[in-house]
Amino acid sequence: MPNYTFVVNGKTVTVDAPADLPMLWALRDKLKVRGPKYGCGINVCKACTSHLDGEAFNPCVTPVSECAGREVTTIEGLADGDELHPVQEAWLEQDVAQCGYCQPGQIMAAVALLKKTKNPTDADIDAIENVCRCGTYFRIREAIKSAAAKMA
């Protein structure tokens, strides 16, 4: 099997995997990076949302070969040591999470949005498609707005 080398959360790693193995399973099963979650496997629920070279991507439909030589950030790599990212802080302040399973993906999607759009409108937030089956959407919306205000 071919080897692929890339950076995950600041650390260079090499995995032995078929070229078409979805990155989600390279992360979860081979590297034991378990923050990104499986929810659908077809880029519909977005629970696995992480960053590839700083942009939101969905590892469940991205072959490991596409990530070679690139930089992957998962939820585990978002905080700076014990210092949380402002979006994570906002999530705590709004007490967003219920079951918590989708929240790594929600947070990574929100961080990606705020990178591009400093002051997102309701319509910008509506465009986030990540499913939250506990229905925490309103608190997510409030958390994104509060993080935007703090990061301004």
Partner: peptide, 19 residues
């Protein structure tokens, strides 16, 4: 009161069965 497990959830360290 905010959830005790919230920090684990927002940092991706909350452990579910397949983790």
């Amino acid at each position: 009161t905010s959830r005790k497990d919230a920090r684990a959830m927002v940092t991706g360290t909350q452990v579910y069965t397949l983790d």
